[in-house]
Write a protein that binds this DNA or RNA. Structure first.
Lengths: 333, 333
DNA sequence: TTGAAAGCGCTAACAG
DNA sequence: CTGTTAGCGCTTTCAA
């Protein structure tokens, strides 16, 4: 930058002013500076820029679990787009491990002076973020120990939607598969219960299956056990995209066809032997909202108390969720 | 940091030394410093650290297209893991647009003083990176205008593998669907041609389909047209995961069952009505290798001339690729 | 409108 | 071994 100043025969401050919008600089001078910048191929050093006290870097951090899960990937992509439009980069935090790992990753990112954090929180207390002086937006699920913005989907409503739909088909024995202790899981279960209550039905607690892990394998195993019971359910509500996959895999092997509704849409859901009915929401919007909110917080444009944005869910009927209770017998062939 | 120094009653330099491994500091002093750090909750400011001349930040940049494509997501995740293990963060570049957008994104990242760049390049010249003074590793496809490390899969070999397999089933009219002008696309086509040559067969150029876009819709449309010709192929080689999806969608609607082999494995490929045979490679390893290589370049540990890492492809037989030519008639029901 | 100068938090070179 | 000091590239007063 100092080179540019010399080249243009102006002071350092002037160059800085031009680079930052050029207010309070005579047009002619500004032009001269711009020419010098051009000639020298100068590019502002964002790092030095962010060194200024108070000033944060023009990057947001995104901390999430498994990018390989289309759900997270969609959030990442969407937030990336919004951030990019405002000239912000997104730094990714790798967190596939323990909650300790998440904390470490977050602190790493904070030490990089990011302008804000978007976090899809795992369990664990996030109180350590309180004094960090960085705006935080939680995505998909709230965190404990800290008041902050949160963008999520209507999990309870979605759970009710799915369950109501199955109840309407006449199902009375509806199993629900739950990934371990996610916040979302609890809300979806609550919707499930509420639907039953609304229909005047008692929930058979043996049909509420808490899985040890949130992956497809775990769901597959549980489904197999579930369907081989003496009194199997006639319908299954899989509360997560990966769980849905496991359920379908088990059913395929077993040759059984209870009704199935999944939570969260997924690629190829409509191309499986029986197209899969799901409760879906606009995941990309989740990411977009989070990024927008965070950007506004970071710039100081938004000083409202912590917001809570809840996106609606919708039922997408494709076939698997419309099977009547009688279909859950052994498959023809 | 200055607070820490005061608190511990030592000089600034000493604190710095402790923070950076503590070589050349008496144990007792170091301990005192560590205590102070603990008490003050001090965290090194990575930004200031990276300001040092020559020193780069402890972040790598990853520039790729659509994170929503599991292929890219897998690369991102894998490189994130490797980088994270070395204490590096990964900054993501959003590039879903024109090659101009890619250039802009890359320069943005360079201005953030990243220690290295991993780029899944789109078309367009990358010569502008030559003088950037940042190590670059290209992923999945090489770029023009610059000599740099490249990590990719054996596209030609994979293309040959897929085609050979279909030829072995007795197919003689094998269509190949190609996404527009990707480098990879050309290599896969080359493998396709080589396989034909090896079998002493002439390629019917009307079966080499260049799609206008690389998405599923485009492939779906093309497949429909292809299969409704008077002389349809008895097998289709879809050179990309999204293309494979489009092909299957079209075939499902048409009720036709030519043999199908896809390039790149994808989730649920084994659960579709006819499980899909694919040529697959270890995508995660692609990301891991890229990150490792870049890290070594960035640290100066690796001074070899530009490397070229090629990962092998393997055929995964699942059914769709093992149909005989005779199966391509209209489906029973 | 512009130039000069004071740092931002840290590392590295140099004395002590 | 340890304290001091000079910047890194930029923004931002403060004068001129």
């Amino acid at each position: 930058m100092i080179d540019v100043a010399r080249r243009a025969g102006v002071g350092l401050g002037t160059v800085s002013r031009v680079v930052n919008g050029g207010h309070g600089v005579r047009d002619e001078t500004a032009q001269r500076v711009r020419t010098a910048i051009e000639q020298l191929g100068f590019q502002r050093n964002e790092v030095a820029r962010a060194l200024r006290p108070g000033k944060k870097s023009s990057s947001l951090a995104l901390v999430l679990g498994d990018l390989t899960n289309p759900f997270f990937a969609t959030i990442a992509k969407a937030s990336l787009e919004v951030a990019g439009q405002s000239g912000f980069a997104v730094v990714l935090g790798s967190v596939d491990e323990d909650p300790e790992g998440e904390k470490r990753a977050i602190q790493e990112l904070v030490s990089r002076q990011v302008a804000g954090l978007m976090i899809v929180p795992d369990q664990g207390d996030h109180a350590f973020l309180v004094g960090a002086g960085v705006p935080v937006v939680f995505v998909d699920r709230p965190a404990t120990g800290i008041e902050a913005d949160i963008v999520m989907v209507d999990n309870e409503g979605g759970g009710k939607l799915a369950t109501d739909h199955l109840l309407e088909q006449g199902h009375e024995r509806i199993a629900i598969l739950l990934a371990p202790s996610y916040y979302t899981t609890g809300r979806r279960l609550r919707g499930y219960r509420r639907a039953h209550r609304g229909a005047g039905l008692e929930v058979d607690e043996s049909l509420v299956v808490q899985l040890p892990e949130g992956n497809a394998e775990s769901a597959e195993k549980a489904t197999r056990e579930l369907m081989l019971r003496p009194d199997p359910p006639t319908a299954i509500f899989a509360s997560t995209n990966f769980l849905t996959e496991g359920v379908l895999r088990a059913l395929g092997e077993l040759g059984l066809e209870p009704a199935v509704v999944g939570f969260d849409d997924f690629r190829l859901a409509d191309m499986l032997p029986t197209p899969v009915t799901v409760v879906a929401s606009d995941i990309a919007e989740l990411g977009r909202s989070a990024a927008r909110l965070l950007l506004d917080r970071a710039s100081g444009a938004d000083r409202r108390p912590p917001q809570r944005i809840v996106l609606p869910c919708a039922l997408i009927q494709r076939g698997s969720g419309e099977r009547p209770p009688s279909a859950s017998k052994r498959k023809p062939r």
